[in-house]
C-alpha cells in the first residue's frame, strides 16, 4: 500500500492547500442540506401519531447527538495518531474539534430536555442515556480545559490525547445505554442492519439533516484548523507569504 498520502497529511502546508479547496464545497453543502432538512422536517414531514408535532425536534436532536459522539471518537483517533506518529496536525485537529463537539453535545442535551417535557413530563431524568451524554459534555470540557491549562504545546497535546483515548470508553456506554438499562429514552432511530421503523417521509429529512450536520462540522473544523495552522507555523516561509497575500487582499 502507498502511504505517501498519510505522510502528506502530516504536512501543514499540504493540509492548508487541500482544505482551502474543500472548504467552499463543504460550507455550501452544509447550508443547503440543513436548510432543506429544516423546512422539510418542520413543514412537510407528517406528524407522529403519538407525540404529535413535538417529534419534529428529532431533526436537530438526532444529528447533534450523532455528531457529539462521532466528534469524540474523532478526538480519540486524532489523539492516537498524534501519540503514535507524532503528527502535529493531529493535535491541531483534536484541539479545534473539541469545542464543536461540546456545542453539539449541548444542543443534543438541550433539545432532549425540551422534547422530554411534553413527551415524558419532565425536563430531565437521571436516566442512563441522559447521564452518559452529560458525562460526554464534561469530558469535552476536560479536554478543552486541559489543552488550555498546559502552556507547553507538546505536553498539552500528549495529555489531551490520553484523556480523549481514555474517555472514549463512554461512547459504547452511550450507544448501548438504551438496551442495557431500563430507560425512558427511545431506542435508536437508525440501525445499520435494519430498515428504519419510521415511514420514509419521516426519516428521509432526518438523513438529509444528519449529512448536513456532518458537512457543517467538517466546514467549521477546517476553518478553525486553517487559522490554527497559520498561527502555529507563523515562522515558516510559506505562512509568511500566505499572510502577505491575505493581508494585501483584506487591507
Amino acid at each position: 500500500m502507498n502511504w505517501t498520502w498519510f505522510h502528506k497529511l502530516g504536512s501543514p502546508k499540504w493540509f492548508y492547500e487541500i482544505s482551502g479547496r474543500w472548504l467552499p464545497w463543504l460550507a455550501w453543502a452544509a447550508l443547503l442540506l440543513i436548510a432543506v432538512g429544516t423546512v422539510w422536517g418542520l413543514a412537510f414531514a407528517p406528524q407522529d401519531y403519538q407525540q404529535g408535532n413535538s417529534f419534529r425536534i428529532i431533526y436537530i436532536h438526532v444529528p447533534a447527538a450523532f455528531l457529539a459522539q462521532s466528534i469524540y471518537v474523532m478526538l480519540a483517533v486524532a489523539g492516537l495518531v498524534g501519540l503514535v506518529w507524532k503528527m502535529k496536525l493531529a493535535d491541531v485537529a483534536l484541539q479545534q474539534a473539541a469545542p464543536i463537539g461540546a456545542w453539539m453535545t449541548f444542543i443534543a442535551l438541550l433539545t432532549g430536555a425540551v422534547w422530554g417535557k411534553p413527551t415524558w413530563g419532565a425536563w430531565w431524568v437521571w436516566d442512563a442515556r441522559l447521564t452518559s451524554m452529560l458525562i460526554l459534555l464534561f469530558l469535552y470540557f476536560g479536554v478543552i480545559a486541559l489543552g488550555q491549562a498546559i502552556s507547553n504545546r507538546d505536553s498539552a497535546a500528549k495529555a489531551c490525547a490520553v484523556l480523549s483515548i481514555v474517555g472514549v470508553v463512554n461512547i459504547p456506554i452511550i450507544k448501548y445505554s438504551v438496551e442495557w438499562w431500563n430507560t425512558l429514552h427511545q431506542p435508536a432511530t437508525f440501525k445499520v442492519t435494519e430498515k428504519p421503523a419510521m415511514p420514509v417521509e419521516m426519516w428521509l429529512p432526518l438523513l438529509v439533516m444528519v449529512i448536513g450536520f456532518y458537512c457543517f462540522f467538517a466546514a467549521v473544523l477546517l476553518m478553525r484548523m486553517r487559522l490554527e495552522v497559520l498561527r502555529r507555523e507563523a515562522r515558516s516561509s510559506w505562512v509568511k507569504s500566505e499572510i502577505r497575500t491575505l493581508v494585501g487582499k483584506d487591507a
Partner: peptide
C-alpha cells in the same frame, strides 16, 4: 405546532443560534 409550538420553536431557535455562533 398542535400546542407544541413553544417546545419546537425553542429547540430550533436555540440550535440555529448555536450553529451560527460556531
Amino acid at each position: 405546532m398542535g400546542n407544541h409550538g413553544l417546545y419546537v420553536w425553542t429547540s430550533y431557535g436555540i440550535s440555529l443560534a448555536v450553529l451560527l455562533l460556531n
